[in-house]
Design a protein around this nucleic acid. Structure first.
Lengths: 374, 374
DNA sequence: GGACCGACTGTAAACGTTTGCAGGCGGCTT
DNA sequence: AAGCCGCCTGCAAACGTTTACAGTCGGTCC
């Protein structure tokens, strides 16, 4: 049916071996033969059968991405980063997302196993036991956003703790002394790390301050509930730090409804910098995660691992690489009313600022910008 | 290296043929033999080599998705729809997105060719010439959001025209007589269809009304510019209809800056229902596109085409299938001030309303809700 | 002029599966 | 008791590539 290498060989009056060599850019094929073969292949619209090739070469030129059920900008940015990097390296991307539970994730993983050279895994269920159970030792894999205890796999993660720490420090620097935290779901690692970062900063910078943690689950509704609850308190906190932007936005609704003005009556900050954060009233101060970068770097590292395996080299030691998030200062934190952001300038890590398109953002990076590798 | 079917056969003391039949659920294998083989395969952690299988079966169980450079919710929803449907049908998803120009798209397409059973194409460059040039006749494919003249391929598209028509009709029903339109980029099909739908409604419902079309390019900035320009007019239109939400939001900023109140001074509507639309002040009336549905249906149809091809059936005639968008009524259109939404009830198509979570949305569907197939 | 060498090309094996075909074996029918 | 039939199993070919190895051919060196 389809045209194979044999058809090309017959038509070009050479052997299949020569066709293969000519088309794959091997040396040892006469230039005129090569161009002739290429011409014939193009004329016949020859498409190599990648399965046959994979069978003999034992590589698929495909990496798999196993992702959780995600929405919006976070998902699209992550994919963009992975996809771009994959194409740059000549790999295809096999995607499996939207897994609701551990079983689904396991099934999806199993289904990918024969078909990929490496695996990028981002999953709340990918704990060491799960990995041990379902992932062959020999398949190069990278974990994204894990820190699920320790696994044998290398990992890349956003430094949630540092991000939350820096935000809380910023709030303190703005003059807020009484800071409440709206937490994410119990058992969610991101949520717990953010809480921890907040508490660390609190204890360190405001010794003796009481911990005020309100429950939430990352949903807008839970933010709304937390906001209403807080608005009813006798003694209002100075500032609210929500573990993600969605909750911050829900909270903002509740505060508005209660007649409280942000940031005049109470300051507010979020985490993630979802696009909507720029458009709330007032615009939301938050923590930005460079998501596309996260995906791209993960892929680059995975490809390196695949290459290392094939050339028989020992893989470099499994490291967990942390990506620093950056503070995005808008007006909801009240910094312009209490103290200028300059207060943060005494922090030990170097900071950079730049004006961006919107005009109302001020970004601060907590570490020097690294030059892009490659 | 890896464990193959032969290893399983040797270990289970049967032939490879029996292993194959046992594992693939063929009939004609004794129950006890089957379970024994399964046990051995599991113990050995046997993973079938999918390339070898593809080679002989001539199917990859993979469909490719060729997508343009997209951001945010639209992208993630589309992928979600496709991914879910693919998994339900037992197909893998090979993704290639973020293509900036026709050459890049062609390269990505070529790279997919040997590896997929079918192709889902959404690309501004996928015109009939491009298709003819790069896509083999024999590969089942479906176009998403095209209507690029006519191609030999079946297609699924959002009915931009109808959506814009219905929105303009709604604005007219709200009492607005003087409606300006902020257009999308020239040459963009979505943009042109939306403009056309608006103009159709205008001419039909307000005969003799003058066309007021302001240029834009779908970016927030262009919406802002359009808004400033309109705010400076001697005679303000009653309503503004932006060809997408981003421009509507930019425009809203400009109107606010100019001291105009929405909807009291001027009504505003958008298109797409991006998440941010719920959070603007006032919340934005817009047109919702059920994107995940679009992706899911496209995949279902593609799989049907693949199956048809394999069973040798003639494919059903290539149809373009239109998906109706739905009106999302919030307060920016001023409907509650001029006329109640009930005015729309005389429209010929059936409408349904429901309260949604947010409490401030009223959705109207312009056609009856179809039961989910399967 | 013969041996050797280098550049190129062809032959054939191998990759891991699926599946058509044939054969074995037990039980049932006549 | 012989034949038949149906269930189950094994043998071996085939899928389309890549690549080790062998071979051809013309030229160069002694």
């Amino acid at each position: 049916m389809a045209v194979t290498i044999k058809d090309v060989a017959r038509e070009a009056e050479v052997s299949v071996a020569t066709v293969s060599r000519a088309l794959n850019g091997r040396v040892n094929v006469a230039p005129e033969v090569r161009s002739h073969v290429q011409a014939v292949a193009a004329r016949l619209r020859y498409i190599p059968h990648s399965a046959a090739r994979s069978l003999i070469t034992r590589r698929t030129q495909t990496i798999g991405a196993l992702l959780p059920d995600m929405h919006g900008e976070f998902f699209s940015e992550l994919i963009r980063g992975i996809d771009r990097a994959a194409r740059a390296k000549g790999y295809h991307l096999l995607l499996s997302s939207s897994h609701g539970d551990a079983d689904e994730t396991a099934t999806a993983l199993q289904a990918m196993l024969g078909r990929v050279d490496g695996l990028l895994i981002m999953s709340p269920y990918a704990d060491p036991g799960f990995i041990e159970e379902h992932l062959p030792e020999t398949l190069p894999s990278i974990l994204l956003n894990p820190v699920h205890g320790h696994t044998r796999l290398p990992a890349l993660a956003v430094d949630n703790r540092k991000g939350a720490y820096v935000m809380t420090r910023h709030l303190v620097n703005c003059g807020h002394r009484d800071i409440a935290f709206i937490a994410g779901p119990k058992g969610n690692l991101d949520a717990e790390e953010r809480l921890q970062g907040h508490l660390d900063a609190l204890h360190e910078l405001l010794p003796g301050a009481s911990e005020q943690v309100v429950a939430g689950d990352f949903s807008e509704e839970s933010g709304y509930r937390a906001g209403s609850q807080i608005a009813r308190l006798q003694r209002l906190p100075h500032a609210l730090f929500a573990a993600n932007d969605s909750m911050a936005i829900g909270c903002l609704f509740a505060l508005n409804e209660a007649g409280l003005r942000v940031p005049a009556d109470i300051a507010l900050a979020g985490f993630d910098d979802i696009p909507t954060a720029r458009f709330t009233q007032p615009p939301l101060t938050t923590v930005r995660v460079r998501i596309a970068d996260l995906g791209g770097r993960a892929l680059d590292r995975l490809v390196a691992a695949v290459a290392a395996k094939e050339s028989g080299h020992r893989l470099p030691p499994h490291r967990i690489q942390m990506l620093d998030p950056e503070l995005v200062l808008r007006s909801s934190c009240g910094m312009h009313e209490h103290r200028s952001a300059g207060t943060d300038a005494h922090e030990p890590v170097r900071t950079t600022r730049k004006r961006v398109r919107n005009g109302s953002d001020t970004r601060m990076r907590s570490t020097p910008v690294k030059p892009k590798t490659r």
